[in-house]
Amino acid sequence: MILNNPSPGRPLTLTQRWSTLFTVLLAIGMFGLGLVLRAQITGAVAEYEDTRIGIRLTYPEKWLQDTNSGDYVFRVRDMTRAGFKTTIQISVQPVSSLTTERNVADQLARSRVLTLQDYRVLSISQSTLRDIPIEIVRYTYNDQSTSPFLQSFSTVVEGQDILTIQRGQAIIISFRAAADSFEDEYPVFDAFLSDLEF
């Protein structure tokens, strides 16, 4: 049985027009939902609060969280990321009444140059974080595989410290990511800062 299109040259019927419109709308809508789903999944957060230090924050879900180190009071790492694990950490240092954020930045640079390979400060600038004056230090260094029995190339890491002095202690909020993905990852840090209360 051969059924020819009775009118191949004719204009589209109303049903065909509506169908096309609905199809286009559905496709756009579904894709939009897909983007929403993506945002929900990538933006999922977990909450953390430490009343002893006085911080409350959210961090990306499924990032490995650690508070058991002497070097920092809080650290999260994106362990599911291949290569260098993007890291956000908060550390505190005692300061005197004369210490400024700039002093802390310089002291950090002096100590890190001994422990981090090719540590270089890229810039130091002043800004505010919700009306709190902060010092922003951007830096870079080479991260190496920790296990001596494995073979890995160094990763160029870009980092940013946000330094502020609160209640007699310097609070250092650090964000580190592989240099080639630093900008892509930075929104995560932005979101972290926007939720951070200290």
């Binding site: 051969i2 059924l3 020819n4 299109n5 191949p8 040259g9 589209l12 065909q16 096309t20 199809t23 286009v24 496709a27 579904m30 894709f31 939902l33 897909g34 789903l37 993506r38 999944i41």
Partner: peptide, 30 residues
């Protein structure tokens, strides 16, 4: 759900658009 709303819909919609606006409706006889 995620693949349906992203890879699936993009792929099928593009093919639909090609068929709908390039080939049809004049080419559709049967």
């Amino acid at each position: 759900l995620g693949y349906t709303l992203t890879a699936g819909i993009v792929q099928e919609f593009i093919k639909f658009l090609v068929v709908r606006y390039v080939s049809g409706p004049r080419a559709l006889r049967i």
